[in-house]
Design a protein around this nucleic acid. Structure first.
Lengths: 118, 118
DNA sequence: CAAACATTTCGATAGATGGCGAATTGTAAG
DNA sequence: CTTACAATTCGCCATCTATCGAAATGTTTG
């Protein structure tokens, strides 16, 4: 029971949903997510920690940068993966998500993964 | 966006998940849910109100009794119905839910819908 | 119409949660 | 090895939420 409540609680915050939707377009660096979401780094980090505990995302460290993506088959239990499928379909086309997608394109443009790496 | 967050927030409480799982077995009277969940009537009523606002359940009044069931095709938006499908599959087999199912059988036995109606 | 009863609404309260800034950690570059 | 910097952890505060009991609502029955 506990694991499923971790998933539902993780989905119960709009900023976390925005993060998941953004990661639906591919892996992102924490600094890019901070820029996109517009909250303090510590807050975004906390959200990522909650999403990771729920096994909805997974992280990969490269130097001093941390990259997150949606948890794939290996890393996520079935319920987490199906929850992601549901969520991404449910939010598709919503204003907030469309706005984020547009803004994310700009963010990636001004601070691409290569910038982080340099 | 708002409607989807109403759904995810509604699912982010264990007692509401228990209620939904119980309703997965069919329509129930509020008094039966109160007995099953073991919280104060006012609290259960509040939970039901939240679930209804999220369009996950629908109610039907009969005399002074109120019967709730999972929202069907007409009453629920697509995202709510798919969320229910996800949830019911995800919680299937969990200890809390199995315990509830067993206890629900007893509750229905001692206070069947007919008792309410009499 | 009065009493009984199922349910909901209201008001209060304790605990959970989201947010921030400061301090910490770990890595890369000077 | 010291500085710079990305990210996380920590401590604090404001707000939200789950819960209860009391009061209100609506319906049935005497």
């Amino acid at each position: 029971m506990f694991d499923i409540m971790a998933v539902t609680k993780a989905l119960a915050d709009e900023n976390r949903v925005r993060i998941l939707a953004a990661l639906g377009n591919g892996e992102l660096c924490v600094c890019q997510l901070i820029e996109l979401i517009g909250l303090a780094p510590s807050t975004v980090s906390k959200h990522l920690s909650i999403l990771r505990t729920a096994r909805l995302i997974q992280g990969r460290k490269n130097g001093r940068w941390m990259y997150y993506r949606l948890a794939d088959g290996q890393a996520a239990p079935r319920e987490a993966r199906t929850a992601l499928v549901w969520l991404l379909e449910a939010v598709e086309g919503r204003k907030t998500i469309l706005d984020d997608r547009r803004r994310l394109a700009k963010v990636i443009e001004t601070m691409p993964a290569e910038t982080c790496r340099r």
